[in-house]
Design a protein around this nucleic acid. Structure first.
Length: 884
RNA sequence: GGGGGGUUAGCUCAGUUGGGAGAGCGUCAGGAUCGCACCCUGAAGGUCAGGGGUUCAAAUCCCCUACCCUCCA
């Protein structure tokens, strides 16, 4: 049975049993900072299991794409070296939200495996949690499993929990006995063994408890079911494959890789097969992640993606794969997935370009690395060591991104070996340091989500003022009954016109007025789905929980946010129109006075394109198109061409913001009623924010007007300063500049003539001592550069001797410059004299024997000062000669 | 969030205990050539990322900020 038919049969089987089929959600979990990627089939249903959100239906079935890497369960290094580990996989699951429970779940699973896909009961085993007699009995009565094939395992294997608190329960796994050939051969090999003989294929979670802060379990009134079966594993069993990689999901990729290498894939037996597996696995993960809008970067999810790509490339070196190879493989993979994921093909141009650019970047990294390694190798051999130290290897990897395996390949021909142990030790330190500095993500809200029995009713689309009941006050890390003037608090009401920060739009500010006091609201947030928490400071009196309060949103700030949000949609549409459909939103910030929009695009945008984009938005504003908001089913919205981005959930009803003929987007934000309300729109800047992502900052509405006024004011001041009519400013500036240039040239030529003349006067002041010509003089001089010009001339006139010039700038500073001819380095080092002079002048100085500089304050009398110095230098010169 | 490295001419980069901002390529002008690439001569082009500090003197040393590369969480 091929993988496509497995997916179909799974969907079909559970649809036939009354389940709603839900499409795979995004790999990037929406609004969940604690989770790097969707790593299990139940992730999109997390809020439904927690009870903070309604499930799409009481019974659901999905085939969810998942990525597992980074975080707690980091299997990245094992992928490719085992038969079963993947970074990307598909999880098939059926779910019950307080509908059916153990009995049905067991019946469904058994029937699907034994009837639908035809596995023989004789190869199946099941495990249950130690004291779950109920499940054990059901396996016997419902499925007819022989009690000797029902194994009880402990908490580690058969108890599941989402987090430290919340829903949890025992689970039960179905295993396939693949036969002795797959066994590790140990006499103890049995169900529960790590090896491949007893392969766990399906995990049924019986969510029947709620665990509270103290760890106490209470029975849930309506227990739920969450199951998960890896598509790759089932495919491998049904196709009689030796590993997940020998299935129709992977073999075409192996073939595509093999076409360009000399070392063929040996179906798990070949010497370099692990490289094939790593590459194929990582291509699958990277393709989907990039397709979902993720871009390689040096932090968070983007970094994990980068590691997939670079790791694949590293293994490609083992196979001698010619680069670039990722684009072709990624395309091949998208063809394989075209049937289950028809939407994939539309984004593949972008995926390929992102992968190609990361591949190119890493090649560049490696190129810069080779000379570094050569240099280190040479230095090591010079020391007679012929070993690259752990510290050096760490530096190469940590600072320059050169993996040790790559260094290893280069090192052999250079005749050096590597201290890999030292490297591993140093790497361990780095990891430890990273862990220590981990602060635990963003601060969590002090009260649990279960504190609220119903979601806060958001009224902010319709009105900016309303009244509601104050349900909850929080100060510091605990809930309080009331708050006094000056206290900083969180307030939660049953109804709220305040828009909570989300979808890029900043939260509203405003006021909360209670019978005996008022709170200045500085922001509104959404700590949990369905919540609106107001952050503020009590400005007068006292407010108490339970009171009825007036809620007033700051109108002008909200108005600013509205026009900037609508302008953002127009900007997005204009970017797609001018630059192309590859433009996808990558981040957005909507503030009352400006907006910032990040999007996927490979290169800087030319000035003329920017003007075109800006003009397009302004044209649309001028058309005064109505902004329509409607609620639709998600399918309806998407088929109507709405732009959807990662970060969306299964939620059945979605809010669609449509500007006819211009833009359709799913959006929860607040918008202008008509594009004409935006007034005008100016792009302030365009810049790069990461490889493949550009950022535009812009202003609209009142902010745009204010910006235009500022520009005009500045222009007026320039006009006034230059005293020219408008339109002549540039002419004037260029005329001024060429005039300045010609004056500078003239000045330079005058100076040089002046210095020539001056030279004669100065030389007349010089004297001869001990065979040296010595000159010490003070001159009027603005800066060091002028002193140097004079010195250059004097140098040409004195074949053997020394010169010290003291430049008087007219102020309270004196500059000193000293020079000695090249044979005097030992005999008459001028830096000593400059230092002495500078010290006498209350400053300091020094330099090299033949060239020195210094500074200080003017002496009380120049003639006295110079006389003393000259006489000291004369003595020194004569003595030095006598001594030599 | 924590480390390491970086930011100097349009581009690629050098700049060694702090002491006169450079090279190659590119651009422009002139020369040479039937012509082109090459070649020869010359010129333009710099807030040494930004800010603060130390110093007589900072591209250089110290601190802060921004951005880029890279590793870890």
């Amino acid at each position: 049975m091929d993988s496509l038919r497995i997916r179909q049969s799974f969907h079909g089987f559970f649809e036939g049993a009354g389940h709603r089929r839900v499409p795979s959600a995004s790999l990037i979990p929406p609004g969940d900072a604690t989770l790097l990627f969707t790593n299990a089939g139940m992730v999109p249903f997390k809020d439904a299991f927690l009870g903070s959100e309604a499930p799409p239906a009481p019974r659901c079935v999905s085939v969810q794409r998942c990525v597992r890497a980074g975080g707690k369960h980091n299997d990245l290094d094992r992928v490719g070296f085992t038969r079963r580990h993947h970074t990307f996989f598909e999880m098939m699951g059926n779910f019950s939200f307080g509908d059916y429970f153990k009995k049905e779940a067991i019946a469904f699973a058994w029937e699907y495996l034994t009837k639908t896909v035809g596995l023989s009961p004789s190869v199946l085993w099941v495990t249950v949690f130690t004291d779950d007699d109920e499940a054990a009995a059901l396996w016997k009565s419902v499925a007819g499993v022989d009690p000797s094939r029902i194994v009880r395992l402990g908490e580690k294997d058969n108890f599941w929990q989402m987090g430290n608190t919340g829903p949890c329960g025992p689970c039960s796994e179905i295993l396939v006995d693949q036969g002795p050939a797959f066994s590790c051969g140990r006499p103890t090999c049995a169900v529960g063994c790590d090896c491949d003989r007893y392969l766990e294929i399906w995990n049924l979670v019986f969510m029947q408890y709620d665990r509270n802060d103290a760890g106490v379990l209470t029975r849930l009134p309506r227990p739920s079911i969450d199951t998960g079966m890896g598509l790759e594993r089932l495919a491998s069993v049904l196709q009689g494959a030796e590993s997940n990689f020998e299935t129709d999901l992977f073999l075409p990729l192996m073939e595509a890789i093999g076409k360009n290498t000399r070392i063929p894939y040996g179906r798990g037996k070949g010497e370099k097969d692990f490289a094939y597996r790593v590459i194929a696995d990582h291509v699958r993960a990277s393709t989907f992640l990039v397709w979902e809008g993720l871009v390689p970067s040096n932090e968070g999810r983007g970094y994990v993606l980068r590691r997939f790509i670079r790791r694949a490339m590293q293994f490609s070196l083992d196979l001698g794969l010619p680069t670039p190879f990722l684009p072709d493989l990624s395309r091949r993979f998208s063809e394989l997935m075209a049937s289950p994921y028809p939407e994939l093909s539309a984004g593949m141009d972008r995926v390929v370009s992102v992968l190609a650019s990361e591949e190119e970047r890493f090649m560049k990294t490696l190129e810069t690395g080779l000379p570094l390694v050569q240099e280190l190798a040479q230095a090591a051999k010079k020391r007679g060591e012929a070993v690259l130290s752990g510290e050096e290897l760490f530096w190469l990897y940590d600072t320059h991104g050169i993996p040790v395996d790559v260094v290893m390949d280069w090192a052999a021909p250079l005749g050096v070996t590597l201290d890999t142990e030292g490297f591993t030790a140093r790497m361990g330190e780095q990891k430890e340091q990273g862990r220590r500095s981990w602060t635990g993500g963003r601060p969590t809200f002090p009260v649990p989500a279960s504190r609220l029995s119903a979601p806060v009713l958001f009224e902010g689309y319709e009105r900016l003022e309303s009244s509601g009941r104050l349900l909850l006050l929080v100060s510091g890390d605990r809930e309080i009954p009331s708050a006094r003037e000056g206290e900083e608090i969180w307030a939660v009401t049953d109804v709220s016109p305040f828009y909570p920060e989300g979808g890029g739009q900043v939260g509203d500010r405003g006021r909360l007025v209670a019978p005996g006091g008022a709170v200045e609201i500085s922001g509104a947030y959404r700590p949990y789905p369905g919540w609106i928490a107001l952050r503020g400071t009590v400005t007068t009196g006292t407010v108490s929980s339970g009171e009825t309060v007036r809620l007033e949103v700051d109108r002008s700030l909200r108005a600013g946010a509205r026009v900037h949000h609508t302008a953002t949609h127009l900007l997005h549409a204009a970017l797609r129109k001018v630059l192309g459909a590859h433009v996808r939103q990558a981040g957005s910030l909507v503030l009352p006075d400006r907006l910032r929009f990040d999007f996927s695009h490979g290169e800087p945008i030319s000035e003329s394109k920017l003007r075109e984009i800006e003009a397009t938005v302004n044209l649309w504003i001028g058309e005064g198109a109505p902004v329509g908001v409607s609620e639709k089913s998600k399918a309806e919205a998407l088929s109507g061409g709405a732009m959807a981005f990662f970060g969306e959930k299964y939620g059945d009803r979605v809010r669609v913001v449509e500007i006819p003929g211009m833009s359709v987007e799913l959006c929860g934000g607040t918008h202008a009623g008509s594009t004409s309300e935006i007034g005008s729109f100016f792009i302030l800047s365009e810049s790069g924010v990461a490889a493949g992502t550009r950022r535009i900052e812009a202003v609209a509405g009142a902010s745009a007007t204010r910006t235009a006024i500022e520009w005009r004011e500045e222009l007026l001041r320039i006009r006034e300063e230059l005293k020219v009519p408008s339109g002549r400013i540039l002419d004037r500036i260029s005329a001024d500049r060429s005039e300045r240039e010609s004056l500078e040239r003239e000045l330079a030529s005058h100076k040089s003539r002046l210095f020539d003349l001056e030279t004669e006067t100065l030389l007349a002041d010089s004297f001869e001592a001990g065979g040296l010509r010595i000159l010490v003089a003070d001159i009027e001089c603005r800066d060091l550069a002028d002193l140097r010009l004079r010195m250059d001339i004097l140098k040409g006139r004195i074949p053997k001797g020394a010169v010290i010039l003291a430049g008087r700038s007219g102020g309270d500073r004196v500059l000193l410059l000293g020079w000695a001819s090249s044979d005097l380095e030992k005999r008459f080092p001028v830096n000593v004299w400059v230092r002495t002079m500078a010290q006498t002048l209350g400053g300091r100085g020094g330099g090299r024997p033949l060239w020195a500089e210094g500074g200080g304050s003017p002496p009380p009398s120049w003639p006295d000062f110079l006389r003393e110095i000259r006489s000291a230098m004369r003595d020194a010169a004569e003595n030095a000669q006598g001594g030599s």
